[in-house]
Simulated scan of single mutants.
Amino acid sequence: MKIYPAVDILDGRCVQLIQGNRATATDYGDPVIRAIRWLDEGADALHIVNLDGAFGAAEANASVIKDILSETGAEVQLGGGIRSTGDAAGWLEIGVDRVILGTLATKEPDCIRELADEFGSKRIMAGVDAKDGQVVVRGWEEPAGDYIEWAQRFEALGAGSLLFTNVNVEGLQQGIDPEPVRRLVAGTRLPVIASGGVTTPADVRTLADIGVSGIVLGSALYGGKITLQEALEAGKEK
């Protein structure tokens, strides 16, 4: 199971939010330095979120993200502010390994097929941000339908993987809720990367038992609740 440390970027800085609320941002410094640190500690992939893009400024942080790509050469999956197939194609063309399509995938589902046909399914990840069993979009405020049904639709359209974020527990550092993840893994044949609530090595082992292909570590990693080494070791145990 692969561990993806999160590098969330807001106003050019590495931050962590609670429940996606911009007002809760905690600053963790230069995103490039943070990315290099996680790789030095054993990670071999990064989960980057352009938070300014998610909040409406799609071009924000482009230079910082390009610096991470050029400085690290690491596997990178990127989400945030991808509002069109052109946005997605632009990131893929400069070296991002996978783009994460969230709101765009629910509003224009055929974008998945279009991008998968051009770049290959493995480079197209559909975001399944779920709250109380519903996919939520536009800042996690707008429900858009059953998350399992959406996941199955994304699979049929040609997505190569799914990023599942449990909005109910995201950023709270209080542990995971395994049941929604278990339902999703059982409901699709696609690899699932789980995000939201991962706080302890036991959480990592539980997700490994469920069968996810990877996890994203964010608030608990930055807050010291779990170290990257602990997560890597727990992921290897299964």
Rank of each mutant, 00 (worst) to 15 (best):
G235Y: 01
V7F: 00
D87Y: 06
K225G: 05
Q77G: 03
G80L: 10
Q152H: 00
T188I: 06
Q229R: 15
W150K: 12
V32L: 11
N21I: 15
D8E: 11
I18Y: 13
V181N: 01
P178R: 02
C111K: 04
S161A: 14
A58Q: 15
R123W: 03
R22V: 13
D11T: 07
L115T: 09
I100E: 11
A35T: 03
T200H: 01
P201N: 05
K122W: 13
V96L: 01
A126T: 02
A89H: 00
L157F: 10
Y222D: 02
D209P: 00
D44H: 10
F164L: 14
V128L: 03
L190G: 08
S219A: 15
V204T: 03
R83C: 11
L17R: 01
D110S: 12
I124L: 10
I193P: 05
D203H: 08
A159P: 00
A58S: 15
W91I: 11
S213T: 15
L217T: 12
A234Q: 06
C14I: 09
G218R: 03
R22D: 14
P178T: 08
P191Q: 10
Q174M: 13
V136N: 00
I112Q: 02
A74C: 09
D203W: 09
Q152E: 05
A57H: 14
R123I: 11
L217P: 11
V169F: 07
G81I: 08
E114G: 02
